[in-house]
Design a protein around this nucleic acid. Structure first.
Length: 153
DNA sequence: GCCAACGTTGGC
DNA sequence: GCCAACGTTGGC
């Protein structure tokens, strides 16, 4: 069984790849979209991820990470003081889940969104498509290899 | 700060 | 269960 590849989107002002490097391991909390949640629920230990910076000066991929804990209930949904609080979630029936990530490596060279859009073989990469808003998207093995090469230059 | 895209909500 | 209205995301 081979590892699957994913892309995780984060606003660097909120949580950047360097923050993940600093923390070592971090729960990917706050996902409140069903498609992204379902993607997380299907993740397995050892699955790989790109760490994408969105809503910033130069959006793009900063590095790679790995799933080190499979989906479990996101505690922030029960916390009335959290911006991620969900009144419809109960301890017995959580609606939202998260995985834990750890960094693998920072890219030698940051790969901006514009470069993803130009690169041969990435035409179908979801994050590069217009109007995409999903915070977690699947990445094919071919796409993984191409982006990895771009980041290693 | 604009606006296109699209997910979610809620009335019917 | 349809669909219009609304809210959010995120590139530009």
């Amino acid at each position: 069984m081979s590892r699957r590849c994913w892309l995780f989107k984060s606003e660097p002002d909120c949580y950047s790849f360097d923050d993940l490097v600093r923390d070592g391991v971090s729960p990917w909390e706050g996902v409140r979209n069903y498609t992204s949640r379902n993607h997380m629920s299907s993740m397995k230990l050892g699955d790989l991820g790109f760490f994408y910076h969105s809503s910033c000066e130069v959006p793009g991929i900063a590095g790679t990470c790995e799933v080190v804990r499979e989906a479990y209930a996101d505690g922030t949904q029960f916390d009335v003081k959290s911006e991620y609080f969900d009144p419809k979630a109960t301890l017995e029936n959580p609606r939202w889940f998260m995985v834990d990530l750890k960094p693998i490596a920072k890219f030698k060279k940051y790969v901006p969104l514009a470069q993803l859009r130009e690169a041969a073989g990435l035409e179908e990469m979801i994050v590069a498509k217009r109007g995409n808003r999903l915070s977690i998207t699947p990445v094919t093995e071919a796409e993984w290899e191409i982006v990895l090469a771009l980041g290693a230059k």
